[in-house]
């Protein structure tokens, strides 16, 4: 079995937001204007979440944590969807079927990581950005929920290519845009069930932890940090 997972090394991450930009471009995510942002209606599938570390009363240390969809093994979002528009597939990717989504936002409420975004309006790109849309990703209609898919359109293409070449999918054939763009090489991606893969080795290491582990969602985004587990989470 394959279980796609991501490892983010917080000791290497410089919070440069290259992953955020790469994701916006790769997944046809429109830029938010000021009024959208002020109302919290901007869309990003990965964002840098601020966490404060340190004792109360002392000067806290700010830590910025890249926060994509955790692709939980027990996703709370898929269980509340009344129309089956979000589902976890056999390789552990939590997908979103925009054609089926009715925009009820139960899933955005259920997600403890708050990484799902509701589409309040039709996407708009300032010229000439609309010329640069990726044909591999659909432009979402208004009124649906969208989320990080681990760039699974890249998996579709990579798998198609591998099948045609008559070989199994190799480690590194399929990387999400954020992982590929990280200049600090702080992000890793691969098959958690393949014990030789870099994600499996890093996830088994002493620095590994997951966000809100106590909820039992079993996230497949694993963080590495030599400090205590991610601070105030």
């Amino acid at each position: 079995m394959t279980r796609w997972a991501m490892v983010i090394d917080l000791d290497r991450c410089t919070a440069c937001q290259a992953c955020v930009v790469a994701c916006q471009v790769e997944n046809n995510i429109p830029p938010a204007d000021q009024s959208d942002s002020a109302r919290g209606r901007g869309i990003s599938w990965i964002r840098l979440a601020p966490f404060y570390e340190g004792e109360h009363g002392t000067r806290p240390e700010l830590r910025l944590v890249p926060l994509p969809c955790m692709h939980c093994e027990h996703p709370p979002c898929t269980r509340v969807c009344p129309v089956g528009a979000t589902m976890i597939d056999h390789e552990g990717i939590v997908g979103q079927n925009y054609a089926r989504c009715i925009g009820c936002r139960y899933c955005t409420t259920a997600c403890p990581y708050t990484v799902r975004r509701f589409n309040w309006k039709l996407p708009e790109w300032p010229a000439p950005m609309e010329e640069g849309l990726s044909p591999d990703v659909s432009v979402r209609p208004r009124g649906v929920v969208e989320k990080c898919t681990f760039c699974h359109h890249r998996l579709q293409v990579a798998r198609d290519k591998a099948r045609m070449e008559g070989r199994p999918l190799r480690d590194g054939d399929y990387l999400p845009a954020c992982v590929e763009s990280c200049p600090a090489e702080a992000m890793f991606f691969g098959d958690l069930d393949d014990r030789r893969s870099i994600v499996a080795r890093l996830a088994a290491g002493p620095r590994a932890f997951r966000l809100l582990e106590e909820l039992g969602t079993k996230p497949k985004v694993i963080y590495l940090s030599k400090g205590e587990s991610g601070g105030d989470v």
Binding site: M87, D89, H90, G95, A99, D136, S138, H152, Q156
Partner: peptide
């Protein structure tokens, strides 16, 4: 063959 949503939807 697979009928999972993520096989074809993107």
């Amino acid at each position: 063959v697979s009928v999972e949503c993520t096989t074809c939807h993107r």
